[in-house]
């Protein structure tokens, strides 16, 4: 996360990993594994204001801002969503507001997980991406010295 890779490079690595899989089972086992490995969020962060509510599952998202970069931590009560969330953190965390705001996140389509963003899934993933970008936008204001005219 907090390394020198660009967002595109992190996306590329995920796409590469998925290119090795032939079956849906392999893909989902990988995602589930990512979900299991994502460090659980401290209970104190699992409060209403950090909730991104999907219809079925819940995602908690917290952010940090240091050295001009935005850092994300998240958790979910559903494992597959948690794995997908883990990938989003891998890709977006530790970048500047502008980088995050400009991220196209094409990897989601490339690895065949676009259907998880569909409205019907109601799993909060789409809302999560929006919220990550909203945070980035909010921190962008912090970055820029106020204009005094």
């Amino acid at each position: 996360m907090n390394d020198n890779r660009t967002i595109e490079q992190a996306e590329e690595e995920i796409i590469d990993a998925f290119s090795l899989f032939d079956t849906w089972e392999e893909k989902y086992e990988y995602i589930i594994d990512l979900g299991k490995k994502l460090p659980p969020l401290d209970e104190k962060y699992k409060v209403a204001e950090n909730i991104i509510k999907g219809c079925q599952s819940t995602v908690w998202l917290v952010t940090d801002f240091a050295d001009g970069k935005v850092f994300f931590k998240a958790d979910s009560d559903a494992m597959i969503v948690k794995g997908l969330v883990s990938m989003l953190i891998e890709v977006l965390s530790g970048h500047t507001s502008d980088e995050i705001l400009n991220a196209k996140l094409d990897f989601i389509r490339e690895i065949g997980m676009m259907n998880h963003l569909a409205q019907t899934r109601s799993n909060g993933l789409l809302a999560m991406i929006k919220q990550m970008k909203n945070y980035a936008l909010a921190y962008k204001g912090v970055n820029e010295p106020e204009k005094t005219t």
Partner: peptide, 13 residues
């Protein structure tokens, strides 16, 4: 210990 949504996704596949 399993969220219903995870079951739903894996059954759908």
């Amino acid at each position: 210990n399993i969220h219903p949504q995870d079951i739903g996704v894996l059954l759908d596949n």
